[in-house]
Design a protein around this nucleic acid. Sequence first.
RNA 1: GGCUCAGUGGCGGAACUGGUAUACGCACAACACUUAAAAUGUUGCGUCCUAUGGGCAUGUGGGUUCGACUCCCACCUGAGCCACCA
Length: 1064
Amino acid sequence: MEKYNHTKIETKWQARWEKEKLYKTSADKSKPKFYVLDMFPYPSGAGLHVGHPKGYLATDIFARAKILQGYNVLHPMGWDAFGLPAENYAMQNKIHPRTATEKNIATFKRQLGLLGFTYDWEREINTTDPEYYKWTQWAFLKMFERGLAYESNEPINWCPKCQTGLSNEDLEDGKCERCGSEVERKPMRQWMLKITDYADRLLNDLEKLPNWEESIKEMQRNWIGRSEGAEVEFRIKNYELRIKVFTTRPDTLFGATFMVISPEHKLIQDLKSGIKNWKEVKKYIDTAHKKSDLERTDLNKEKTGVKLDGVTAINPVNNEEMPIFVADYVLSGYGTGAIMAVPAHDERDWEFAKKKNLPVIFVNDGIAVKVDNVDRQIEFIKLGDQAYYDDKILKDFIFIKSGIFGLVFVDEKSKNNFFNLLNNKKIKFTAAPFTSENRFVKSINSGKYNGMFSRDVKNKIVNDLEMERIGKRAVNYKLRDWVFSRQRYWGEPIPIVHCEACKNRKYHFVILHGYTATGLSNGPARGSSDNWRPWLKEKLEQDGHTIYCPDLPNTNQPNIEEQVAFVLKNTKIDKNTILVGHSLGGVVIYKLLEKANKKVAKVFLVDPVVTPNFPDKSRPMVEKSNNWKFNWAKIKKLSDEFIILGDVNFETIFEKDLKNLAKWLDGNLVLSQPNQGHFTGAEEPMIWQLLKSTDLVPVPEKELPLKLPEVKNYEPTGTGESPLDNIKEWVNTKCPKCGGKASRETNTMPQWAGSSWYYLRYIDPKNKKALVDKAKEKYWSPVDFYVGGAEHATRHLIYARFWHKFLFDIGAVNYDEPFTRLQHVGLILAEDGRKMSKRWNNVVNPDEVVEKYGADAMRVYEMFMGPFSQPCAWSTAGLAGARRFLEKIWKLYHEAEMPACGGHGCKNIPIGLPQMMHKTIKKVTEDIETFHYNTAISQMMIFINFVSKFNSLPRSAMERFLIILSPFAPHLAEELWAELGHKQSIFKEKWPEYDPALVKDEIIRLVVQINGKIRDTVEVDANISEEDAKKVAVESEKIKKWLEGKKVIKVIFVKGRLVNIVVK
RNA sequence: GGCUCAGUGGCGGAACUGGUAUACGCACAACACUUAAAAUGUUGCGUCCUAUGGGCAUGUGGGUUCGACUCCCACCUGAGCCACCA
C-alpha cells in the first residue's frame, strides 16, 4: 500500500480543478441558486493564521455540499483593501499603500489556494479598484442627491494617533478601535450619512430575518437603541429661547426641579450675556472639554456641574422657575443634549440634587429602597397586609443581593415595619426616592393628574402638551448619523466639488403655497396656522436672495389658471428663478412652467399634489381647481433640477404618485419625516437642507470613477486636513455646474464604504453600466448564507443593511434585506488559550499545517473542534487525530475487500452495514444544513470505525461515503474517487439519499425502568407492541427482584425506547 | 447596571420533541507487534462503596413529571455586546 501523501494529492487536484474551471459559476438559470458568502478579508501585512480560514472552510463545505445537491452555487471571494491599517502598514514599511495592498493580496491568495477552496476567481473584487469604487462613489452621489449625505460641523471623535475622525461604531470603550488611543471630541467639517432616517426600518425589519442568530439581532437592537417618550420645550425667562429636552418619563414633569444641559450645548453661548458667573461656567466647560470621553463616562465619578447664574427656565406645567445647570453627566450626543432633572425619580438627578442641595418633589407615590452588599440570601419576609405590594415585587426584593427596588406602601406604618425588618436582618440599605415603574404607582403633587396611575399620566400629559404645542410624542435613538469621512489618503475620494461662485449666486425664489395663505400677509391662514414660509423667507433673505411669496387669489376656491396668471403678472420667471411649491402649489408650478415656457434654475416641490384623487376624503376644492392635464415632457425640459420632497407618512399624497412624478420629471425623490405631517411645521429642516445655498456640487456621473491621485507623500497632515489637500493639481478643478474655479473635496470615505455593498458586485463584477444588473441580481439575491465574525454585528452589518435598503429605495436592487441567513464564526484561540497574536508569539501558520498534516486534515480538524460559533483553542494533538481519521480512510480503501455489488444480494456484507450507511448519510446531510459539522464528522468516524472492524465494504457503499466526505476532505475524496476508476470529478456526482426505513434499527435494546431508574435492558424487535414489551419487561430476572413485595401502580411504555414500571 | 448566551469526565465536546448521560476525538494506562522506540492494533478510562451488585453524579438550591442535561423559579460563575442613553 502506498502511503497517504497529502502534498502530492492536494497539489495535483488543486491544479486540475483550476485547469478544468470546476468552480466557475454557471450561468444556467434553470437550476435553483444558492449564494454562500464569506465576509471578505482585509488583506493585512501579517498574512493568515489558522484561525482566519475557519469561516471560509465552513462556507466551502457548505458550497460543495450544495453543488452536489444540484444547486447553482455562487461562492465568491474578494478584498476589502482600503482603510487605515493598510495605510499605516505602508507608512511603517515605507511603501505605497497600493503596493503594500497588492503584495498582501498575493500572499492571502496563495495561502487560501493551499486549502482547496471553490472560489470562482473570475468574480474576484477589490474595493480599491477604480472600476469597483466607481460604484461606491455612485451610490454616495445618489445619497447626496437625496439629502442622505451631508456636511456637518458637529464635534466628532478624533483619534490623535490615526489623525482622523471616527464614527461611534469605530470606538471601543471610548478609545480608537484601531490603535487604542483615547479619542478627543473635536468640531470638524465632516461628511455624514443620515442612517438615522433608516433607524426604524433597520430595527423593524430584523423581524423579517428569522435565520439570523438572535444574539446578533439583539446587538443591533441595542445599538439602534430606540426609546419612546416626549420632547418638551421649556421657556427661558426673559428670553425668546427655549430648551428642548427628550424624556421617557413625561409623567414626572411636575417633579422637574432643575434643568441640566451638556457642556457642548449651543444654548450656553446664546445665553452668555445673561450668565452672571460666565467665568466659572466657561472654566467648567473648558475642563469638560479637556477630559477624554473615557473620564467623562466613568461611572464611579462624582457628578459635577455649575449653575448658570442669572438665567432660569420655566416649567410649562406649573410655571415654576427652575435653575439651569451645565454638567457633563448630560451627554451632548444623546437626545437633545439637555434634560429636565427629576431628582425624585432618577438616580443620576438624585445624586446631583443631593450634591447641590436642590429641591426634590415626589410625583410618584412610592419609595425605592436601595440595598447594598447583601452577601447572603435572606428568607421571605412577610409584611402583613398593610403594604401596598404584591408577592412578586416582594419576592424580587428579598432574593436579590443588592439593587434598587420600587415599593409602594399604603401608609407610614407599613413602611416603618418594612424598614424595621431590614434593620433586624442587619441588611444595609438606603431609602431613596426613586421608583421603578410598576402598576401600583400613582401620581401625586401633579396638579390635575393626581391620583391617576403614572403609566396613564404618561399618555395623558403628552396629549395635553401637544394640544398646547409645547411638547410632542417623540422617538429617540442611540444610533447616530454615520461619520463618513476620513482625513486620510487611502480611501475612496468623495466625488464632490466645492464651488464658491455657486454658493454665492443669488436667486429669485418664487414660493407658492397650496390653498392656504402664506402666513406672511395679514390674510387668514387656512388649514394650519403655522407654516415654514416666514421662516424660510427670513433665512433666504439673510443669504441675499429675493423672494416672492404671495397669497394667491381665491384660496378658498382655487383656480389654478387664475393663480398662474396672477404669478406671471406680478413677478418674473427666468433662468435665475427657483420655484418652490407646496401641496397644491406644486400644481400651480406645473401649470406655471407650461404657460411661461421659460427655463428656470431649479424646481423644488414639497409634498406636491399630483392627482386629484383622494380616496379617503373628497376634496372638491382641489379636484375642481384645474383640468389635471400636464405636459410632463415639456415641463421636464424647463429645469435641469427637480427635487421632490415627500412625507413618508402622509396618507393623502401617495408615495406611488410621487414616484411617478419623479419619473416623469427625471427628478430626485427625497422621502423624509417632517416635523409636522405634510410639512406644515413652522420649521422644517429638511426643506432648508435641500434648498440652501451650497458650495457642494456633485461630480457628474459620467466622470466617475473619480480616481485617487497617485502620490509619493500620503502621510496625514495632522491638521485635520486630508493629505490630498497638498496635491494642488488634483484639488484645483472646474466647477461641473458653472465652469468656474473650484476645488475638490479632499476627505476620503471610511473603510466601511466599500464593504457595504460588495456582495452585490460579485453577482455582476464586470458591469460597466450599473452597480449590478437587476435581472442577475433578482436571480442571485439575497445572499442565502452569510458567515463571518460577530465583531461586525453593529458596524458592517448595520451599514450594509442601510446601503442595501437605500439601493432598494432608488430601485437599484430587488429585495430590501441583503442577507437571509447569518452565522457567526467562533474565534480559534492559540494553544495557550489566548488570542493568536504576534505579541504572544503563539501564531500557528496555515502554511506549516498544510505542509505537515495536509489541507484536508486542517479542514476536518477545524470543523471538528467544537460548535462552530464558539471560540475554541487550537490543539496540535487534535489536528493529529483528524489526520489519523483520514489515514484510516486511506487504509480502509486500500486494504479492505470491496465487492462490486450492492444491496442485499451481496455476500460478506457486515451485519448492520446498510443501517449504518443510511444513518450516516442522514446525519451528515442534516448536520451540514444546520452547520453542526463537528457531529457530522463524528458520525463519519463512527462509520469508518464500524467498517474497519470487518475490513470489508461494498464498492457502492464506499462511493457513497466518499461523496459525503468530499465537502470536508475534497482532495482525498477526489483521489480515491479517481482510483475507483471514475474519469469525472466527484463534484459532478449527486449527493446520496437515505432510505428512512434503513435509518431505524431492526433490533433495539429496550430499557426497563423501575420508578424511572434503569434496572435492565432487553434486546427486542424494534416494532414490539406495548403488550409484548410489558411482558418481556416483567419477565426479566433482574426486574423480578425489584418487583418482589411491591405493588405495581402503573406501567409506562414509550415505543421503541422503554418500559417504566412505577411501584410502591 | 442592562441585554444575550453558556456552565456536562483530566481536556474539546455529544445527547432528536423530556425517555439508556458522557457519542466522537484528545490525553492517559495496560497489553500485542518490535532488539528497542515511534507508528499501528486491542482493551480500559465519571465517582464512591461492603463490587456478578448498588449508591451518587450534567454549576447551586428548589419545583413540575412515572421519568429532567433538556421545562419552570431563584441564586452562583463565566463569556460577549452595550453602558451617566434621560
